[in-house]
C-alpha cells in the first residue's frame, strides 16, 4: 500500500512539472526579467547569483530569461510535431485498416521502410535536403515519428475492425467512412492520446539533440538545445549556462513521462502473492 502512494507521488510530481512548463510556454516571455537578447553584464559565464538566478551566458546575457524564451520554442515545436505525427499516423492507420489488402500492404511496407530509418538519421537527411526553419522542423520531426504512430494506430484499428460490433455495422451495409469515423475511431482516442504524449517527449529530445549539434534551430532564435550548444565553451568553468538549459529539458521530459506512466495505471503484478 505504501508503494501505491509512491507511484501516486511520482504521478503528481509529473503533473506539477507539466503544469509548470505549460505556464512557462504560455507566459514565459512575459515573466522573463530581461528582454530577449539583452546583454546585461560584461562578465560572461557568471555563476548563479541573486541578480542572475541562473548566471550569465557566453555573451553576458541573463540565462534565466534565455531559458524562459527558449522553452517556448522547445515546447511548441515538440507539441506541434507530436500532434502532427499523431494525426497523420492515426488517419493513415485507420485508412489502411479499412482499405483493401493491397492498399494496406503497400502503405504498411512503405511505413516499414520509413521506420527502418532511425528517427535521428531520417531527420538529419531531411534537414540536409530542406533546411531547418521552425515550420520545417515541425514537419521533419513529425514525419520522423509518423511511422511509429501509424504502426500503433493501424494495429489498434485492425483489431477493432475485427470486432463483432464493426462486423455488425458492416453487415448492416455501412460505408467505410462511417465504420472508420463512428465505430473505430472513438475507441482509439484514448490510447492514441497517450501515444502522442510519449512522442512529445521524444520530439523534444530529438529537437534538442538537433539543436545541440547545430542542425536544429538556427540563430538568432534559440530553443533549449541551442542554449546548451552556444554555451558549451563554459563547461570547463562549470558555468550554469551550460547545465541549466539541459536540466530544463530533462525536467520537462521527465515530468511528461511520469505523468503519462501513472495515468496508464500501475504496472500489472504478475504472480500474485508469490
Amino acid at each position: 500500500m505504501n508503494l501505491f502512494r509512491t507511484l501516486r507521488l511520482s504521478g503528481s510530481i509529473g503533473l506539477i512539472l507539466v503544469i509548470f512548463w505549460l505556464a512557462v510556454a504560455l507566459a514565459g516571455p512575459a515573466l522573463a526579467p530581461h528582454p530577449l537578447g539583452e546583454i546585461v553584464d560584461y562578465d560572461v559565464f557568471l555563476p548563479m547569483s541573486s541578480t542572475y538566478p541562473m548566471g550569465t551566458d557566453y555573451l553576458g546575457r541573463d540565462v534565466l530569461s534565455r531559458i524562459l524564451y527558449g522553452a517556448r520554442f522547445t515546447i511548441t515545436i515538440g507539441a506541434a510535431a507530436a500532434i502532427f505525427a499523431g494525426i497523420l499516423g492515426t488517419a493513415l492507420g485507420i485508412f489502411a485498416a479499412v482499405s483493401s489488402r493491397m492498399v494496406d500492404e503497400t502503405l504498411s511496407r512503405f511505413m516499414d521502410a520509413l521506420s527502418a530509418i532511425p528517427g535521428k538519421i531520417l531527420a538529419l537527411v531531411m534537414i540536409a535536403a530542406l533546411g531547418s526553419s521552425v515550420a520545417l522542423l515541425i514537419m521533419i520531426i513529425g514525419v520522423s515519428y509518423t511511422p511509429g504512430c501509424y504502426r500503433i494506430a493501424r494495429s489498434l484499428a485492425v483489431n477493432l475492425n475485427q470486432m463483432d460490433f464493426v462486423q455488425v455495422a458492416r453487415a448492416r451495409g455501412e460505408g467505410r467512412f462511417y465504420l472508420a469515423r463512428v465505430e473505430i475511431f472513438p475507441n482509439m482516442i484514448h490510447p492514441m492520446l497517450t501515444d502522442v504524449g510519449l512522442r512529445f517527449v521524444w520530439a523534444v529530445l530529438l529537437l534538442s539533440s538537433l539543436s545541440f549539434i547545430g542542425l536544429g534551430m538556427q540563430p538568432p532564435d534559440a530553443d533549449l538545445g541551442s542554449l546548451v550548444r552556444e554555451n558549451i565553451s563554459g563547461l570547463a568553468e562549470g558555468a550554469p549556462a551550460v547545465l541549466m538549459p539541459a536540466v530544463a529539458i530533462a525536467l520537462l521530459t521527465i515530468g511528461v513521462n511520469l505523468l503519462i506512466d501513472s495515468l496508464r495505471g500501475q504496472a500489472k503484478t504478475a504472480t500474485g502473492e508469490v
Binding site: T6, S208, V228, I232, V242, A246, A250, I254, L258
Partner: peptide, 16 residues
Amino acid sequence: TLTLTMVAIPEFLVAT
C-alpha cells in the same frame, strides 16, 4: 521510476 526518469534525460545532459 528511475528508468522512466533516465529515458527522458537528453544524452548531452548526461555527457556534460
